[in-house]
């Protein structure tokens, strides 16, 4: 009886969004009378930071500071249609819709500015700080605040835009079954090191080294926080969490936090996160969806590490001490 060490590796690719009957998200953007920009969405922020990212995307596209953008995700009854926040699709789908809406609003904004400055709209540019300048003659400028006032009170224009992003439904080819389930994939690879006590079946994860390829990280600190939390959650799925430990039998499922287990702050593995940025072709400013993907590669990596440590393949999750001991017993019986 001994503590045995093992190391496992696993790599995954992971689709951004899904494609069952088409996967749309819509967005509306309009300016307030003082030149702030309101983005109306039905996509929901669950804590992953959707509001911050949509504000950055809108601000970048219109050419204003991020704090001039207000994100309203209040109401799925009245907002523009969104399939929802799931399948790692929020940034990619809603972000593309926001870009399209913001481009249209920017065009109206530049047209109003052009009338005020008596130049062509195509000769104008934004400075990113709340002003519109004549290209090559920056002394000739107008603030976006004044442009919005003029649009509302003088010129009768609505500085607004409509955005739509749709991944159309893909049907399988009759002959081959080939189809395009997704247009955008994130990737990850994890190496996990574990110790397995072959007397108790207990697994301790010592280190988890993750590398994530997530397109462009639109907000690097928020990406990192999601990846750190996701890596922990992957370990939790590998070793702890289940509502049906004897599926399909429903008995002994955890009904509260005393029985539904997760690793606590005292059970953390040494965790390393490396981010690779390879901008995606169809993502907003190159982004992909890292949300769900980041909690996946740890699971097969831990299963492989357990195999490396004690020579048994556990093919049912979570990898509990009971399953390991039963597998060890079966192995020694053979």
């Amino acid at each position: 009886m001994a503590i045995r060490r093992g190391r496992g590796v696993a790599a995954i690719n992971y689709p951004t969004g899904m494609n069952l009957g088409g996967d749309p998200t819509q967005a509306l953007v309009h300016s307030t009378p003082t030149g702030n920009f309101m983005v109306t969405l039905s996509s929901v922020d669950l804590g992953q930071g959707l509001k911050q990212i949509m504000a950055q995307i809108c601000a970048e596209t219109i050419g204003v500071p991020t704090d001039r953008v207000i994100i309203d995700t209040a109401d799925t009854d009245t907002g523009p249609h969104c399939m929802g926040t799931f399948a790692s699709r929020g940034t990619h789908r809603a972000g593309n819709a926001v870009i399209q809406a913001a481009k249209e609003a920017r065009q109206v904004m530049l047209e109003v500015a052009a009338e005020e400055l008596e130049v062509n709209a195509s000769d104008l540019e934004t400075d990113g700080e709340g002003n519109i300048l004549v290209k090559g003659a920056p002394q000739k400028s107008i603030s976006i605040f004044d442009v919005a006032l003029s649009a509302h009170f003088k010129r009768g224009r609505s500085i607004s835009g409509r955005g739509m992003f749709l991944i159309p439904r893909s049907y399988p080819e009759k002959e081959t079954g080939a189809m395009k389930p997704s247009t955008c994939y994130a990737h990850a690879c994890t190496v996990a090191e574990v110790e397995v006590d072959d007397e108790t079946g207990e697994v301790t994860v010592l280190t988890v080294k993750n590398i994530f390829e997530i397109g462009r990280a639109l907000n690097p600190r928020m990406v990192e926080q999601q990846l750190v939390g996701g890596s922990w959650m992957g370990i939790s799925h590998a070793l702890y969490e289940t509502t049906e430990p004897y599926y399909p039998n429903r008995d002994h499922g955890g009904t509260d936090f005393n029985q539904y287990l997760m690793p606590g702050p005292g059970d953390l593995a040494e965790t390393e996160i490396i981010v690779l940025e390879r901008p995606s072709a169809d993502g907003p400013y190159g982004a992909k969806g890292p949300g769900e993907m980041c909690a996946n590669p740890q699971i097969p990596a831990v299963a492989n590490a357990v195999f490396d440590a004690v020579g048994v393949r556990i093919d049912t999750l979570p990898i509990t001490p009971e399953r390991i001991l039963r597998a060890l017993k079966a192995q020694s019986a053979n």
């Binding site: 804590g47 606590g264 702050p265 005292g266 953390l268």
Partner: peptide
């Protein structure tokens, strides 16, 4: 001591390390 003090609190999202 920080880990001990937080050990009665559950977090679903962060993986605890940022909180510590």
């Amino acid at each position: 001591e920080v880990v001990e003090a937080l050990s009665g609190n559950i977090c679903r999202c962060t993986g605890y390390e940022p909180i510590i």
